[in-house]
């Protein structure tokens, strides 16, 4: 018996058909916990506030402080 004869009469249930259509239509994730997300943005603001309130060294531009971490956070927030 050929493979087509073996599997040619398989009748999937409606649930399986729906699952296939759903998986095929799935696009990008609706949720995000990254820095670009709403949750991530809140964390970024918090982290930024903590860093700024920690008072960078005298005469040092704030964006260069803490090994450029503020710059990195700003770039991440921009995305």
């Amino acid at each position: 018996m050929s493979v087509l004869e073996t599997y040619g009469f398989v009748v999937p249930g409606e649930e399986d058909q729906d699952a296939v259509r759903h998986l095929i239509a799935t696009g990008e994730s609706a949720t995000s916990t990254g820095p670009g997300s709403a949750q991530g943005a809140a964390l970024l603001l918090l982290a930024g506030a903590v860093l700024l309130s920690a008072d960078p060294r005298k005469d040092e531009p704030v964006e260069d402080a803490y090994v450029g971490m503020v710059q990195n956070l700003a770039c991440a927030a921009a995305f």
Partner: peptide
């Protein structure tokens, strides 16, 4: 459809 995956055997 914006969802991670559907659960199940498929």
């Amino acid at each position: 459809i914006n969802h991670e995956t559907v659960s199940g055997a498929v």
